[in-house]
Design a protein around this nucleic acid. Structure first.
Lengths: 122, 122
DNA sequence: ACAATAGGGGATAAATTTATCCCTATCTGA
DNA sequence: TCAGATAGGGATAAATTTATCCCCTATTGT
């Protein structure tokens, strides 16, 4: 496992929430788990751009951060279900706030983001 | 300048807001600019862990994304002021939501984050 | 027998982001 | 005259995160 060389700042609330939400797919994972997609394979179908490997890693991190639980059913083929913890559930309105801002400004955001991408490639 | 090889997803609001807020120091920069710290040197004093270079880069990105403006005063030594645009100002409540969640759960977050960091280094 | 399904995880490469280092310019004050 | 403040930015290294590839377990269906 990769071991950090530079310790993160944990000074204020923004640092702290950043530490648990940073990760390309984490927010989406929380969202879909909240919607009831509990199994790894379901989540992967919902997020086809991510590889299984990365999803596992990010799910494990969120489990360590007590945002989700991982229940293993002792059956074959294996079955595992992820659920939000009570703590994790409190993040849902926060994520909704982010998503709403993005949705509300969708057109403008798409425009400025694409403009910058184009200018980079010149 | 670095040119992306993998294009970002821009499907939903969460993708879009992620695209403009990702960056180690961006949220803090927006916050401090909103508090009235307009000059690069002030911002740097507020965020001493970041180098001048990175702050410049992230400020430039946010300018391209129309979250902030950059006003140059033709004086010597140079003077430049950053301000939030009207668009940028609409992000402040969103950032406040993030910070509040982090503050409210400060103790627990610090605990789980540090626990994970320790287990990584074993 | 073989593919598909379900979930895990190691090893390594590639992509991306941050950090370091160094150089530019001009004025002010010691 | 030299240090310090102010702002910008190139080149490169280091850190970090994601992606790729490959292998393992055991059952069910073809």
């Amino acid at each position: 496992m990769y071991e950090r060389k530079i310790l993160p700042n944990l000074n204020c609330g923004l640092d702290l929430i950043g530490e648990v939400l940073y990760g390309k797919w984490k927010i989406r994972l929380l969202w879909f788990i909240n919607e009831g997609h509990k199994r790894q394979s379901e989540l992967q179908r919902k997020i086809p751009d991510a590889t299984r490997r990365v999803l596992n890693i990010q799910l494990k991190e969120m489990e360590d951060h007590e945002l989700i639980t991982r229940k293993i059913y002792p059956v074959v083929p294996p079955k595992v279900e992820y659920d939000l913890t009570e703590f994790g559930k409190t993040l849902i309105p926060v994520i909704a706030t982010l998503g709403n801002w993005g949705d509300k400004n969708e057109e403008r955001l798409r425009t400025v983001i694409l403009k910058r991408l184009k200018s980079e490639s010149e």
